[in-house]
Design a protein around this nucleic acid. Sequence first.
DNA 1: CTGAAAGCGCTTACAG
DNA 2: CTGAAAGCGCTTACAG
Lengths: 339, 339
Amino acid sequence: MSHVTLEDVARAADVSLATASRALNGRRVTPHLHDRVLAAAARLAYTPNAHARALAGASRRSVGVVCHDVTDPYFAAVAGGVMRVAADNDLLVMLASTFRDPEREIAYVSMLRAERAPAILLIGSGFEDPRWERAMAAELAPYLDGGGRVAVVSRHRTLKVDSVLPENRAGAAELARALLGLGHRRFAVLSGPPELTTVADRLGGFRDELTAAGVALGPGAVAEAAFTRDGGYRAMTELLDRGLDATCVFACTDVMAVGAYAALRDRGLSVPGDVSVAGFDDIPVVRDLTPPLTTVALPLHRLGEEAMNLALTENTGRRRRIVRLPGEVVMRASTAPVA
Amino acid sequence: MSHVTLEDVARAADVSLATASRALNGRRVTPHLHDRVLAAAARLAYTPNAHARALAGASRRSVGVVCHDVTDPYFAAVAGGVMRVAADNDLLVMLASTFRDPEREIAYVSMLRAERAPAILLIGSGFEDPRWERAMAAELAPYLDGGGRVAVVSRHRTLKVDSVLPENRAGAAELARALLGLGHRRFAVLSGPPELTTVADRLGGFRDELTAAGVALGPGAVAEAAFTRDGGYRAMTELLDRGLDATCVFACTDVMAVGAYAALRDRGLSVPGDVSVAGFDDIPVVRDLTPPLTTVALPLHRLGEEAMNLALTENTGRRRRIVRLPGEVVMRASTAPVA
DNA sequence: CTGAAAGCGCTTACAG
DNA sequence: CTGAAAGCGCTTACAG
């Protein structure tokens, strides 16, 4: 591991370390010397050691991002927004994928803290578990005290930091109204892990709106599974096994809806002929399904952009900043009026 | 930015810096002192400064990964494999998304070099452009000389480094045979940017196999566009506008096939009734399309795993290592026999 | 504008 | 086993 150092460059350009450093960092230096330094650096293929720089007090250009699963289209889309802003600001992104393991999420925050990332983004629903919340807070507190900035997407209750919040509750309520408007009165829901804040909000918003309309959503009408395509398949299958008594199924995420489509297909049921299906998120692929999926469209790319922007700008106020992004119900062919 | 340092911990535990360092790194230390150090570190919420560590010679635990676009399902799947191996090895991943901009790819490698990443992975087809190839080689050479390791997925001609190569040419040829076996004789192809090595291989393998069977693929039968869903839509539309004279369309990537489906649907054409469609990659979603897509299945997750494994293990031989992963033709309902 | 020097926070031979 | 000290490669006051 022999590396060309600043000292090598300084020697080659016959200037002092300080001058070489200044020239490379665009500070005032006699043009003549400036050129000599740059030429020497280029000739030696010099790359500054980011660690030495960081240790010497230069500001870091690598931010940390933690999400649940990079292969999930929802996170991929949000990450796309994050990467866009990062690229525009010449930032490198240290991306961690927790594989939906709460412990691992905390371990990653700790690693990112060790890296002295100037900012950490937490993407995706938090866990409503007191023990976990305490551990995460304990990890974040010293980081924030040390001047680190934190921004999150989709988790409010747990962390008191700058947040980008999709309006899950309102979106689910609006979807419920639209579905009621189609004449549906018997619903079922494919729900995710109950400890995720997103689940509580979407399920709650949906149920409350039904209740307000005098429509009940019995416990037997809700099936829980993982927030994955296969989870959606399993939950839908379970509902079918229980003897599905609904004209419309709401999947808490589009990804689950994709699995639900497959489960229904495997039972020979058609959408929306036999049952209407609606999702949430509007991940890119759902418009290419057959039939295209009715869903609550979230500006996924913007979720990531806004979070990164929060993390990159100073919060001058005394309170944490919250960016609320509304969802928009998009009716597509997967939901039909009740005959 | 006031941080707790090792010195703070040492003082709190009333030991020397060296002893504190050793205790924290699991080296031999009297149990008594060991406990005192760990207790002090925990009490102070100490996190070692990764930069100081790196500078002092400890090995780095952050590898660099460069891909074209994190929102693309192909890269997301490969990245999933990468993240898996990284997590198993307690590594942090610095992930860069080039947005398919060759210049940006080189800039990222340079940043990763500055970060002294012990390994850099380049995921996705390289560019067949002499100027670009030279610039990339110039960036990589000093990195390799300095002990850095490089592994790539999907690019052979350009870089002489450890590689994971999907057998694009053989896969495309096998697909051609399967399609010929269905009775097709008139083909069209949705191709990507010709400067991508992947395009040359897949298109070449497909065309050569047709030629061997005495079937020509005229220049008018090939439409070029971006390796994206919208690119696929545009290319398919262009083919249709030219007056498509084919019973089967081969999209060089599944993502493009998704766009092609939409274009055909918009023209009122059915798959495979009016035209058969086949893709390449087997990204997760294609089995959920209607009809499910015939394609060449690549072990996407493994592509990422193998690349990371190459980057993590020493190459003891004198030649670069190459892991070839074969694709497997998967016939689904999007391709039908010719009547 | 330029240079000598201190200091960032660790790790690791080197003595003891 | 433990500690004092050097050194990793930079940046940045501080003099000049």
